[in-house]
Structures are given as C-alpha cells and as structure tokens.
Design a protein around this nucleic acid. Sequence first.
RNA 1: GGAGGGAUGGCUGAGUGGCUGAAAGCACCUCUUUGCUAAAGAGACGUACCGAUUAUAUCGGUACCGAGGGUUCGAAUCCCUCUCCCUCCGCCA
Length: 423
Amino acid sequence: MHDLRSLRHDPDRLITSQRRRRGDVDAVATLMALDQEHRNCQLQIDSLRQQRNEASKAIGARKQAGEDASAQMEAVRKLGDELKAAENRMQDCQSEREALLMTLPNILDASVPDGADEETNQLVRDSGPVPPMDFEPKAHDEIGVSLGLLDFERAARLTGSRFVVLKNWGAKLERALANFFLDQNTARGYTEVLPPYMVNRETMTANGNLPKFEEDLFGVNFKDYFLIPTAEVPLTNLYRGEILDKEQLPMYMTAYTPCFRAEAGAAGRDTRGIIRQHQFSKVELVKIVEPEHSFEELEKMVADAEHLLQLLELPYRVMLLCSGDTGFNAAKTYDIEVWFPSQGKYREISSCSNCTDFQARRGMLRYRPEAGASTVFPHTLNGSGLPIGRTLAALIENYQQADGSLKVPKALQQYLGGAEVIA
RNA sequence: GGAGGGAUGGCUGAGUGGCUGAAAGCACCUCUUUGCUAAAGAGACGUACCGAUUAUAUCGGUACCGAGGGUUCGAAUCCCUCUCCCUCCGCCA
C-alpha cells in the first residue's frame, strides 16, 4: 500500500513505476481525484462535528444550570442529520479510494532494469559451467516413479491432478531437506517459527494476496479462512498492528510449512512432475528490517539461499528481475534458478524480494527508531530457502546416474542415516 | 456444544451519560540536587487523519477506551451483533 501523503506530493514516482511495470497508469490519476474528494468530505465533517461538540457542551452547561435547552437540542438534531449524510458520502468515497489503492503494486526500485517480461531479466552471476553428463538425463518424475519415490496416480485418486504422494526415500528426502534447510538457516541467524497454515482475510490482505489475487488461493468452507500459499503470509503478519522496539530489528525468521496454490493461470504448464503442484512444502525466509538497510539485507538473503544450493552442489544462476516481471509486493526481486538437465535449462527455485514498506503499511507494522521518536514502517523481505519439492526434483535430475540410481548429496547423507546411494 | 466472567494508553489498573484523551501507579524521556551510582524532587510523556504554516518543529480541528451497528443534543460509560481471552461442564485428540 502506498503512502497517500507522499503520493500527493509526488504522484510521478508511482506513475513512472506503473509505466515500467506495464501496469495501469490512469489509476493513479483516478486515485488522486478520489483522495481529493475524500479530503473535502473530511474537512466538512470535521467542521460539522466541531459545531456539534460545542453545541452539545453548551446544552450540558445549560441543563446543569437548570435552564431550558430544548431549542438548542432541536438545532443540534438537525446538525446531526446533516452530519450523517456527509459521513455516508465520505464512507463511499473512502471505500472506493481504498479499493483502488489496494490494487496498486509497490513502487519499483531504481536499480530494477526496464523490460516487459522474463526475457529481459538480467543475469547477475552463476555457479559456473554446468557439469556435463555422459548419458541422456531423464526427467525427475520418470526417475522418481521408477525408484518408488513419487506416486502421481494414487495422489490423483486421493485428490486430483497436481498432487503427489512421496514414499520411501522420497518421503525421507522431504524430511531430510526440511531439517537441513532449517538447521542451516537457524545457524545463519534466522529464528524458527511454526505458524498456522490457514489465515484470515485480514492477514491475506496485509500481505498483498488480497484483494487482487483471490483466485490463486484455496479458501476454506466453514470459515472465511485461506490456506497459505507460502509461509511469507503468516510470517510478515506475525507482528501486524504492533509497534516494535528498535532492538527487535533486524528480525530474521524461517518456517517450514506446506504451501497451497490454485495455479489458476497455469493450466497446461508444467503438468508433468512436481515442479508445479497445488500443495508443496517450502522453507521460507522472512526479514523485518530498518529501511536504510533493506537493500543490503536483500543481498544477504540471496546469499543465504545460494549457500543452500552450494552445499547441495546444484548448478544455479541468480537473475535480477526486470520491471515487467517483478511481483506486486516487491520493489526489487532476485530469482535464483537451478539447472534441470532433462529440460536443458534453469528453472526458478527461489525468489527473494524486498517489499520495502509496502506490506508493513498494509499491516500497520511499525517500529520506534528511538524513545520518544515517532513510528516508522520497517521494510519486509521474503525469499525461499528453499522449496522442498523443486529442490527434490533438481536433486533427482542432477544426481541421477546412468543405471537409474541416485547419488545422495554429501550434505544430506547425515540426514538420511548415512545413505550414499538410492536405488 | 452448554454456563459464566472479561477486553481501557508501553505495562498494571480506575472509570455506569456531559467537567475523561482518559485518575493513580510503574516504565521511558528531560531537568534539579549529589563526587559517581543509588535515592529524592520538578516537568514532559498515546496513535492516526485533516488543515494552517518560517512545513521531519509549531499551532488548530477531528477520530480512536477489542470490532461493527444502534439509542441520545451528547457514549469508554446504555442496547444489539461479532471476534478474541479466561473459568467450569461435556465431547474429541
């Protein structure tokens, strides 16, 4: 959410950003007009209320003195009617303004390169040349099924498409990866959190998933709750509405949760394998930091995610997303992409974003820089560190051997009872 | 699911229609006294929005006592709905 006051002062910042995002530019002017109208209403209401407060006080004084006040009371009653009408006008105006405001994405950072789509994303660095394979690599789902790690058919029976059952070493690998990621992240200063997996509408709205992206979410029947699409949602909302002490920042959190996504716009994409599922597990990283450090904290978060891939010895590259590809909440996003031999290309495995004060403002999350000072919105950051499903897929593909068996990455062996090969 | 009790400022906690944006205490901040610390004394001390302006300071106004709605000239205070917390009973794990 944007700060209306600074927007009034400088709407061009948002207009420029919208143009760069290939987003709705006219909406900004509409918003400013609604805002002006709303302020006019408020001015009128404040003055009416002032009149009423003063008149009511006078009535009280007269009554106390034992005088008659019925004429004054009648006058204030009329004032009250006028006030109610004005309040209704303001309410309408305000809800219209809020509705529009909530659909406008964050302002892009100046360092984000211009471009329409992922074609223009910039390569920042990679882990070096992809190691050659001396046989034709198979797809992860083919290997996973033949080794008895993945079962798509029975998952479809239980639920439907885009679900999978993990069995034997598949299930153990999930647990091993989750523990490995959490251990690494906590060693690097992140506090482990286990949040609820379903949240209410306010939480989804503060995070930025609502009102705009409801079709991407799974709702819950009996209540107005939603299954989380990522642990980012509960983590960024954990301190919603609070005023934090400066000493509490920077705050680093990590959480292992299932994630649920409707994948409404992804029909026909990645239908094979476990790259794109309605349910997957992920270890998430979230930071709440002071504004002046947020961009260096973003670099550190990317390094934290990279560190995991380095330990797993998976080939990857880091991309800086261009303006048109950067998500709704983010001012700046790095994607980390991991190598998939069977596809002969890199695929997204982690997306690390600095959301600046966009989410903090939606959730009224603030901190006090020093005693007595006024409150400031901190910056929130989120990134995957890392998703279990896609990591598992990448591991299977990159660690496959010619005989169809799977080597176990050194870093994971201690989490799998010392196993070195899965066959 | 049944019965009852709660929700007030950073915290504790008064307050059943106007003098309450809110007593009192604690914490925090400033100043005074003291060689330092401790202690004591004095003062300041919520958040948001709007407006004025020598515009991150100051002044004026408005709103906010869990959320929403209602009664009233006027509500923290009365009524209704909801949410959350606590206690007891039942049920499930």
